[in-house]
Simulated scan of single mutants.
Amino acid sequence: MLSQKTRYTIRAMQHLADHYGEGPVPLVDIADTQNIPAKFLTVILSELARFGLVDSQRGREGGYWLAIAPIDITYGDLLRTISGSLALVPCASRFAHETCKNCLPETECRVRALMLQVRDATAQLLDGVRLSDPIALAPASEDETMMHPDSPSSLDIEA
């Protein structure tokens, strides 16, 4: 599962990508539009600035913008920058490999073998999608429509 910080970071970066080339985007606009607590967003954007992904300008006309064109940022790069790895277990990480504690030798572990395949498939997908790419929205999950019974996707409409 992605951490809340990672999800907020992705949403903030998507927002900045949507406004690329328009000048500084005020923090409050990002926070309000993306439903991210402003104090947490400040920490996230400061961290992204240290990584060289965003720039900022202080003052009344200030805000944040992408330091790199959205076409040059893949979701894989973004997740690796934020989380350090795409792997679900440390022994399957390419760049932050660690031997798992209380496990079998790596050459005998089928869990590791499976997680290597998951890591590679995840990397292939995320490295092929850029911040500039449109992403089609998915329909609400069944759980979501059950919580909102009046939503159009949960109604049976006869023609």
Rank of each mutant, 00 (worst) to 15 (best):
Q34F: 02
I36V: 08
K39A: 05
F40T: 05
F40R: 09
F40N: 07
V43E: 06
I44N: 00
E47F: 02
L48H: 02
L53I: 04
V54H: 00
V54C: 01
D55I: 01
S56Y: 03
Q57F: 02
Q57S: 01
Q57R: 04
G59K: 00
G59Q: 01
R60C: 01
E61D: 10
G62F: 13
G63A: 11
G63L: 13
Y64W: 15
W65Q: 03
L66W: 05
P70E: 14
P70H: 12
I71Q: 11
I73H: 02
T74W: 10
T74L: 12
Y75C: 04
D77R: 14
D77L: 12
D77A: 12
L78I: 09
S83R: 15
G84T: 05
L86S: 06
L86P: 08
V89E: 07
P90F: 13
P90K: 10
P90E: 14
C91Y: 11
A92P: 02
R94N: 08
F95Q: 06
F95K: 07
A96M: 09
H97F: 13
H97G: 06
E98A: 14
T99C: 10
T99K: 13
T99E: 15
C100F: 03
C100G: 04
N102H: 07
L104T: 00
E108S: 12
E108Q: 14
A113L: 07
A113P: 07
L116G: 04
Q117I: 10
V118L: 13
V118K: 08
R119A: 09
R119L: 06
D120L: 09
D120W: 07
A121Y: 10
L125R: 14
L126C: 14
G128T: 06
V129Y: 14
L131A: 08
P134E: 15
I135V: 15
P139I: 00
A140C: 05
S141F: 00
S141E: 03
S141V: 08
D143Y: 14
P149T: 12
D150N: 12
S151M: 11
